[in-house]
Simulated assay, not measured.
Amino acid sequence: MTLTLTEREKKSIAALIQQHCDPYLSRFPFARYPIEPLEYWKQAFTKPATVQASTLKQAISWHFGSWQRNSLSPAQRSVCIHIIKSWPDFVQNESFDPTRVLQFWHTQLPDWQHGFQAAAFLLHLMHPDTFEITDHHRNQAMIEILQASEIGEDNRTITNSVQDLEDYSSFFNSIVPKLPYGEVNRIKLDRFLKAYGNRHAYKHIAATYTTSEPTIRQFSWDDCAAQSFDLEKITLRANADVLFACLLHLLDKQPQGSKKLTIEQIVDQLPLGTAGICNEASYNYALIALFGNQKGRDYFQFENATLQQVFTEQANQSTRDMKLYLKYANESVTINTKYLKA
């Protein structure tokens, strides 16, 4: 029997989530779980037989928190490899009934603990209107919230079955309309449950550690524009140049415009994940190149005239201090007047 909640229980749980939501989301790894690829995958998985191995790898890596990273654990990598190898057999099925889907993957994946999480995500992509994104962390969060609210059985456990998916999806969809965040209710609830269920992973991380979601998550040179800045004078097209274009676009909407900024203020406006740059190494290198003169870049005028050369030298080295910008966080710069419109 699928989990059901009374109106009073729904409101009680929603109130509990609101109380804790923002603190947990202030540390959420946004760049590991960008929402933009999901809509593409949902469309692709309407026809499973046409899904390519590269798409499978990307989707499973995303679900395991390794988007644009080569950081899958051995167990996660094994699941990914087995799914890709077994996909041609899977798509031969006459029915993609959820129970049969899980039964198929249960026989193909040697590690069902990790395998169930991947299979559950595939079911979400194939049946997004029926199943929410779930995994061990989200299910555990649901169980603990129900227990904290004194709802349901105290001995509820995760069984890695269709029942888990149905219960979680029912729980999720019962709470969504009770939250006050409007059109981002679903996104915030999903992220909160993921973060809450995985909160123990942060116990050794400094309490001051925070993250922020980028204002600009996708980028196109054709669509990026500014009234006060001349983006056409940005002639290079690497990640550093994309970040500079994003910065000008953001500054164009702010009162300070082209006034003096610290390096820290600039970096804060361009968090990891800006313009879809979610790989930390690529992002850090782009920031170093952004402040340097490599390939003739001249985006900033520095109060400390020696700093541009420092960043340039780091950008040109094969081994570099990838967080160099943190050392000079309080140094001030202004946008090169070359990029101001007359």
Rank of each mutant, 00 (worst) to 15 (best):
K323I: 00
N330D: 13
T262G: 03
N139C: 06
Q18E: 15
K233E: 06
R237H: 15
Q76K: 14
E94T: 01
T46D: 03
N185Y: 02
E7D: 12
P214G: 04
L247N: 03
T130K: 13
L270Y: 06
D222V: 05
I145R: 09
T55Y: 03
V101N: 11
Q52R: 13
L307V: 04
M142W: 08
Y168P: 13
I81N: 04
F192Q: 12
V91W: 04
P271D: 05
Q92H: 08
F64R: 07
N279M: 02
D230V: 00
A281C: 04
T235F: 04
N239A: 09
A59Q: 13
I60D: 01
N336F: 06
V333N: 03
D298K: 13
I60N: 02
H82C: 07
N316M: 11
N293T: 06
S12H: 09
T134Q: 14
C278W: 12
L3W: 02
F90A: 05
S169D: 07
I288G: 05
I216M: 08
L193A: 06
D190C: 09
I187E: 15
L146M: 14
W112D: 11
K85N: 09
K323H: 12
F121E: 09
T208A: 15
K323S: 01
C21P: 02
I81Q: 05
C80A: 09
V310K: 12
Q108P: 01
T134N: 08
E9D: 14
Q314T: 03
H249N: 10
Q317L: 10
A49T: 10
K341P: 03
A118E: 09
I266S: 06
T210F: 13
I277W: 11
F192S: 10
H127P: 01
T4V: 13
E313W: 02
K42S: 01
A329R: 14
K327E: 02
D97R: 07
A120F: 04
Q76V: 04
T337K: 13
T55R: 06
G182H: 05
F171E: 02
W67F: 15
I187N: 07
Y328C: 08
A281N: 11
L56P: 02
